[in-house]
Amino acid sequence: TFELKGKVGKVVKIAEDHYLVESEGDKWIAYSDEKLSLGDRVMVVDVDGLKLKVKRIP
């Protein structure tokens, strides 16, 4: 299986209740415990079905 946990991506869209993150050339629906901005670099900390939980990284 394709393992996304630990992968790095970038926030490419902000929606009302989720983010769109591009990682490894694909776009994924993501959510975070912190507020993210367009262009933020993020790391995948968990995968919930087809949704990614991400956190901001420097």
Rank of each mutant, 00 (worst) to 15 (best):
T1C: 15
T1Y: 14
T1S: 15
F2I: 15
F2C: 15
F2K: 15
L4K: 14
L4S: 14
L4C: 15
L4A: 14
K5A: 15
K5W: 15
G6I: 01
K7W: 02
K7A: 11
K7Y: 03
V8G: 03
V8K: 06
V8C: 08
V8I: 14
G9E: 01
G9R: 01
V11C: 07
V11A: 01
V12K: 05
V12L: 11
V12A: 05
V12P: 00
V12F: 06
V12C: 13
K13S: 09
K13V: 11
I14M: 12
I14V: 11
I14S: 10
I14H: 06
A15K: 09
A15C: 10
A15P: 03
E16G: 10
E16R: 07
E16W: 11
D17R: 10
D17T: 13
H18Y: 11
H18Q: 10
Y19N: 02
Y19W: 06
L20Q: 06
L20D: 05
L20W: 09
V21S: 01
V21H: 00
E22F: 08
E22V: 08
E22P: 00
E22Y: 07
E22H: 11
E22S: 05
E22N: 05
S23E: 03
S23F: 14
S23I: 15
S23T: 14
S23G: 06
E24P: 03
E24C: 10
E24W: 03
D26L: 13
K27E: 10
K27R: 06
W28V: 04
W28M: 06
I29M: 10
I29A: 10
I29Y: 14
A30P: 00
A30R: 00
A30I: 02
A30F: 01
Y31F: 12
Y31D: 13
Y31N: 14
S32W: 01
S32T: 05
D33K: 07
D33Q: 08
E34A: 06
E34P: 02
E34V: 07
K35M: 08
K35V: 08
K35S: 13
K35E: 08
K35Y: 11
K35P: 09
L36M: 07
L36Y: 05
S37A: 11
S37W: 09
L38D: 05
L38P: 10
L38Q: 10
L38S: 07
L38V: 08
G39W: 11
G39K: 06
G39H: 12
G39I: 02
D40R: 01
D40Y: 05
D40L: 04
D40G: 03
R41N: 11
R41L: 13
V42E: 00
V42G: 00
V42I: 14
M43T: 13
M43E: 15
M43N: 04
M43S: 06
V44D: 01
D46H: 04
D46A: 04
V47F: 07
V47Q: 07
V47Y: 05
G49W: 05
G49D: 08
G49F: 07
L50H: 12
L50F: 12
K51M: 13
K51Q: 11
K51S: 13
L52P: 06
L52G: 03
L52D: 01
L52A: 07
L52C: 04
L52T: 03
L52V: 07
K53M: 10
K53R: 12
V54C: 07
V54T: 02
V54N: 00
K55S: 14
K55A: 13
R56F: 14
R56Y: 13
R56K: 11
I57E: 14
I57R: 03
I57Q: 13
